[in-house]
């Protein structure tokens, strides 16, 4: 039967081995994959300022980005593709809470420069390779199609 010292070896050994593998995989990801998949070269000052605005206003407290955040408001990674720049500008500059279908967004009342920065940020993140996320709806009705 397993002794206490064998159990301890299992714990320490297992932890060290998996942790080393984890560090190795992380290193590969961060140095080899992330720059290419996120188009590191496109991280302009505006994109970074946009990210800063995203954080300063805790947008993640309602929305998700890369699927992370809260579930009160839409996922925004592909928002440029889905809504277009014009719609986004209207939302960002709204002086009263933007409330599609009654659910209110905080009226941030951003200025022109901030709006440009936010849009640059969303354009950049919309081009990150996310292994196919978010999924494209694939439902086809068998009743309405002939």
């Amino acid at each position: 039967m397993l002794s206490k010292s064998q159990a301890r070896t299992f714990f320490l050994g297992g932890t060290i081995i998996t942790f080393v593998i984890f560090l190795g995989l992380s290193w590969t990801s961060l140095t080899k994959e992330v720059p290419k998949r996120t188009h590191d070269e496109n991280l302009t000052a505006d994109v970074i300022a946009g990210k800063h605005l995203w954080e300063k206003n805790n947008c993640m407290g309602c929305h998700t980005i890369l699927g992370e955040g809260a579930y009160y408001a839409p996922e925004l990674t592909k928002v440029v593709e889905r809504r277009g720049e014009g719609y986004m500008r209207a939302v960002f500059s709204s002086k009263t809470p933007w409330a599609p279908r009654g659910r209110k967004m905080v009226a941030h009342n951003f200025n022109e420069k901030e709006i440009d920065q936010l849009i640059e940020f969303f354009k950049w993140i919309g081009n990150v390779d996310l292994n196919g996320f978010p999924p494209k709806p694939d439902y086809n009705s068998t009743i309405n199609t002939k």
């Binding site: 297992g14 961060l30 890369l66 390779d129 996310l130 996320f133």
Partner: peptide, 24 residues
């Protein structure tokens, strides 16, 4: 021991769709 062996590399389930490679 089981916690760490599964949990450390299990971090990968947060890395599926955030812009890192398919290994995860």
């Amino acid at each position: 021991g089981l916690t760490f062996i599964s949990g450390i590399l299990g971090t990968g389930h947060h890395y599926y769709y955030i812009g890192v490679g398919k290994t995860w």
